[in-house]
Every structure is written in structure tokens, then in C-alpha cells.
């Protein structure tokens, strides 16, 4: 069994550890880094629950080996709020708009939208719906999530 020493910056902190070659990033974050806010919903790259931000890009953490994230900057849901705990506009908007019920898809929704709106917060509803079409939610019917994304986008555009 081959193991690798990896080190990455996760939510601004250095995280290092030993990983097996086959360990995907999602498992590493959850099990070795203790960041269980990233959820595994399908482990074949469709549901989007495990989405994290690696070097600025939203990626499926189940479709990337942990060893591939060596030396990368990783942001998970735990790193979305400000360091002092102030919620990010997306998080605020999710609460305001009842954009979550069971909360399992929420991390992937917020990280996806974070990356998407960081690139350009001026987005139409259709663009937002397409952007989160790679994130499955079984509870909400998406409407609250779309409203939340629109509300946050407006705030972010003013920043």
C-alpha cells in the first residue's frame, strides 16, 4: 500500500497528513482534516454535494485524489464565513430564503455558488439555475436556493 505525505492549505490553515494513493480529496478532508462539512453524496461526480474550491475553482472532491491537492489552496464550507465567524452573504441568503432543509447538499451548493459568483456576480436566474444544475437537492425544489443565490449575487456585486 503506497502512502504519500501531503500538505495543503485548507481554509487558510496548513493541513498535512499521510494518504493512500487511492484516497480521494473528499475522504481526506472529512477523515484526516476532520472537516466533515463536505459531504459525499454519490462519489461519482454527479450530485455535487462534495464540491470544494481548489485554487479558486469549484471541483468535485470525490473526483480528485487527495495526493493531487498537495500544495493546493482548498476552501471548504467551513472556510466560507469570515474568520471572526461573520456569515458570508451566501450563507446569510441561504438562511433568509429557506434555501436548505436537510442541509446535506448545502455545502456543495454554497461552495459552487461561491466560485461561480466570485468570477462574476452579475448573473441571471437562468445562469444561476444552470450553474447549480451540477448540484442535486432532493428537499427544496431549488427555488429557495435560486432566490438565495440572486440575493447574495446582488450583495456581492456591490462589494
Amino acid at each position: 500500500m503506497q502512502e504519500h505525505e501531503v500538505q495543503m492549505h485548507v481554509n487558510g490553515k496548513v493541513v498535512s497528513g499521510k494518504v493512500e494513493s487511492r484516497t480521494h480529496l473528499g475522504d481526506f478532508l472529512r477523515q484526516s482534516a476532520g472537516l466533515t462539512g463536505t459531504h459525499l453524496g454519490c462519489e461519482h461526480g454527479v450530485c455535487g454535494a462534495c464540491t470544494v474550491i481548489v485554487d479558486g475553482d469549484a471541483v468535485r472532491s470525490c473526483l480528485m485524489l487527495a495526493v493531487q491537492a498537495d500544495n493546493c489552496e482548498v476552501t471548504t464550507i467551513e472556510g466560507i464565513a469570515e474568520a471572526d465567524g461573520t456569515l458570508h452573504p451566501l450563507q446569510e441568503a441561504f438562511r433568509n430564503n429557506h434555501a436548505l432543509q436537510c442541509g446535506f447538499c448545502t455545502a456543495g451548493m454554497i461552495t459552487s455558488l461561491h466560485a461561480f459568483l466570485s468570477e462574476n456576480p452579475n448573473r441571471s436566474e437562468t445562469e444561476i439555475r444552470e450553474a447549480i444544475s451540477g448540484n442535486i437537492c432532493r428537499c427544496t425544489g431549488y427555488q429557495g436556493i435560486v432566490s438565495a443565490a440572486m440575493e447574495a449575487a446582488e450583495k456581492l456585486a456591490k462589494r
Binding site: G48, D57, A58, A115, F116, A131, G134
Partner: peptide, 9 residues
């Protein structure tokens, strides 16, 4: 092609 998260990689 897929979704923006899969296009990232």
C-alpha cells in the same frame, strides 16, 4: 459538456 465544476478539471 457536464457542469462548470467538472469543466474545472
Amino acid at each position: 459538456v457536464g457542469h462548470f465544476q467538472t469543466q474545472s478539471r
